[in-house]
Design a protein around this nucleic acid. Structure first.
Length: 313
DNA sequence: AGCGGGACCTGTGGGC
DNA sequence: TGCCCACAGGTCCCGC
């Protein structure tokens, strides 16, 4: 469920809490959650975190270890989340990795200092212990990587490892970093002559990065394209509509701090609000906002899919 | 080439 | 009330 907007929101809320801090220890509570880079753990201890940002659905944390740079690459899959707790906080039920941090960062976990990404509307709330929100500026902290279903992972990599990593190298373009016309042209090029269902292509991270089940369904509805429609049969006009829909849906979701179905929280424990805007996702059997007829569900590329048979052709 | 299905996980919720 | 089972989801991998 953390797709592009959720990971972006997590990166924006996490960065001010950890940038500049030094990693003093790493605790691996679930060995499967550290997918690569065990050999770099000794180097990571003592490294200073420089930056936390997003690419596709990956959260990247760069750290300076003596003379070289290391990267912590996280995939949150469905249930991964981050939260910064005060030093001494015990692991929670689903805590998989803990990074002990010390010094450097300003105290930005205090209440009332959450303004940099705008305020979430609707049912935003915290689900974390109050103690985590009143940490003293220079006290040590613990970055928790929690992951209920253990699908998520962290890789510790050198920049060269990242460049050589097939998954990374194969990622498609960032959908929000191109003009609508360029994105439409890119999709048109990839789609040309293909019989593959358009939704399957949108979910393919090598086609375009960051889209998951929620935003694929929402974008296709907004563009008026049926999810089963073969890629190659989409007109240029519809491609432009699809590119515009992808950008508008992702952009609006980022502005609303992502979608919280049940698990997702940002790095301050706040829920997103974009789920209140869903036109189709999770609305099987309910009425279409545009035509008033019932929304249908089906499976495309093995994923549950909801669409309007009238509005999407 | 691209799809289906299984595997990886666990909490939730519907049905009985 | 309690049990069972389907389901959710991203990615990889295997087989067709």
């Amino acid at each position: 469920m953390p797709e592009l907007p959720e990971v972006e929101t997590i990166a924006r809320t996490l960065a001010p809490q950890i940038e500049g801090r030094v990693i003093t220890a790493v605790h691996i509570l679930n060995p499967g959650s550290l997918a690569a880079g065990h050999d770099l753990l000794p180097l990571l201890t003592g490294a200073r975190i420089e930056r936390a940002h997003r690419r596709a659905k990956l959260l990247l944390v760069s750290a300076r270890a003596r003379s070289e740079e290391l990267l912590l690459v996280f995939h949150l899959k469905m249930t991964g989340s981050f939260f910064v707790h005060p030093a001494g906080t015990e692991p929670l039920t689903h805590t998989r990795l803990i990074f002990d941090l010390e010094g450097g960062a300003e105290a930005r976990t205090a209440p009332g200092n959450d303004k940099e990404i705008g305020t979430t509307t609707g049912k935003a709330r915290t689900s974390q212990p109050d103690a985590a929100r009143s940490t003293a500026p220079d006290a040590g902290q613990r970055l928790f990587f929690d992951d209920t279903r253990k699908f998520g992972w962290c890789r510790i990599l050198r920049p060269a490892d990242l460049a050589a990593w097939d998954f990374w190298a194969g990622l498609g373009p960032e959908p929000l970093e191109a003009s609508v016309e360029d994105l439409a042209r890119h999709l048109g090029g990839v789609f040309r002559g293909k019989s593959r269902a358009v939704k399957a292509a949108l979910l393919d991270q090598t086609v375009v990065a960051g889209i998951g089940n929620i935003y694929a369904d929402e974008s296709l509805f907004k563009a008026g394209i049926a999810p089963q429609c073969p890629c190659g049969g989409i007109s240029e006009k519809k491609l432009l509509a699809l590119a515009g829909a992808v950008q508008s849906v992702l952009g609006q979701s980022i502005r609303e701090c992502g979608s919280s179905i049940r698990d997702y929280r940002d790095a301050r424990g706040n829920a997103g609000a974009f789920q209140n805007n869903f036109a189709v996702y999770g609305r099987k059997g309910q009425t279409c906002q545009a035509c008033g007829r019932a929304l249908k569900d089906c499976r495309v590329a093995g994923r549950s899919t909801v669409y309007c048979p009238t509005c999407q052709k």
